[in-house]
């Protein structure tokens, strides 16, 4: 059993407190998505859980040990983090990038063991980037590039993979491709995944566990099927919406009202529809 938690965690940039006294449990074996509006502290929380940001007070705990008290490499063997929008040096090939995921397993004199070689190759295969392993990262499409970075994190061979907005700046097809890959990593390789997601519908589809944040606090957490309600979305995002089952997966699908809906309402179309939905519920 693995247990990653935050206990009374407070995080700040300079003197600007983002998160105060927050506690959260990351469930073992699952995909957890952190959602919320811009500036709600979801990325900050991810950084606090992964040692990129030092806690003002409280802390993040992995299996009973404060992550700041673990040796850095020991933590990196158990928990990998992919920051948002990473950039590879010009000309660096995918293979070389992925090989660097082995860093925490290496030492001054043992810099490229047979195990490093085997696991790197495996990571290339699993993420489907083997076929362009010899190409420079900067010549790839956005989706391929993101898969290469995920392969690097995979080569780190940690049980936890944390990702900060892995789908940002990607076309829709690539977003789904990346999320599918993460889903497979969780299902087939048992990776515990914690990611910050922008898109609530993606979070509902791919996460087993949702943590919704607003103003540095956790507003709701749990199975998306139970947690995602019109009230919750109103509270967290300050947006009116309707929730209906996703026609493909049956998970909650958030449909914002927005102004176009108000225009439609003037035509009494939505109201009618709404009454019908309420009646059927």
């Amino acid at each position: 059993m693995s247990q990653l938690t935050a206990r009374n965690l407070s995080l700040a940039y300079e003197n600007n407190i983002i998160i105060e006294n927050l506690s959260v449990d990351i469930p073992d074996g699952k995909i957890t998505a952190l959602v919320g509006p811009n500036g709600c502290g979801k990325s900050t929380l991810l950084r606090g859980l992964s040692r990129l940001l030092k806690a003002q007070s409280g802390g993040a705990v992995l299996d009973g040990q404060d992550i700041w008290k673990l040796p850095t490499k020991a933590l990196a063997k158990r928990l990998g983090i992919l920051p948002q929008g990473p950039v590879a040096p010009e000309g660096l090939t995918v293979h070389e990038l992925v090989a660097q995921g082995r860093y925490p397993h290496q030492s001054w004199f043992q810099q490229w063991s047979r195990e490093d070689e085997r696991i790197t190759r495996e990571a290339l295969e699993i993420t489907g980037v083997l076929e362009f392993a010899d190409r420079p990262v900067d010549t790839l499409s956005g989706g391929q590039r993101q898969r290469a970075w995920i392969a690097m994190t995979l080569a780190q061979d940690s049980e936890y993979i944390l990702l900060d907005e892995p789908t940002t700046f990607l076309d829709m097809a690539y977003q789904i491709e990346v999320l599918d890959l993460l889903h497979d990593l969780n299902l087939e390789r048992g990776k515990i995944i914690v990611m910050v997601l922008h898109d609530l519908n993606h979070a509902c589809r791919y996460a087993d566990h949702l943590v919704a944040m607003c103003g540095g606090r956790i507003v709701a957490q749990g199975d998306p099927m139970q947690v995602v309600t019109e009230e919750m979305v109103q509270e967290v995002f300050g947006m009116e919406c309707r929730i209906m089952p996703d026609p493909v997966t049956g998970t909650p699908m958030v449909v914002p009202l927005g102004r176009s809906a108000k225009l439609a309402r003037q035509l009494d179309l939505v109201n009618e529809c709404h009454v019908r939905v309420l009646a059927s519920a």
Binding site: L52, L75, A76, L82, P83, P86, A88, Q100, Q156
Partner: peptide
């Protein structure tokens, strides 16, 4: 690869 990635790699 950047400071954050380097930290993530231990």
């Amino acid at each position: 690869l950047g400071d954050e990635t380097a930290k993530g790699l231990g």
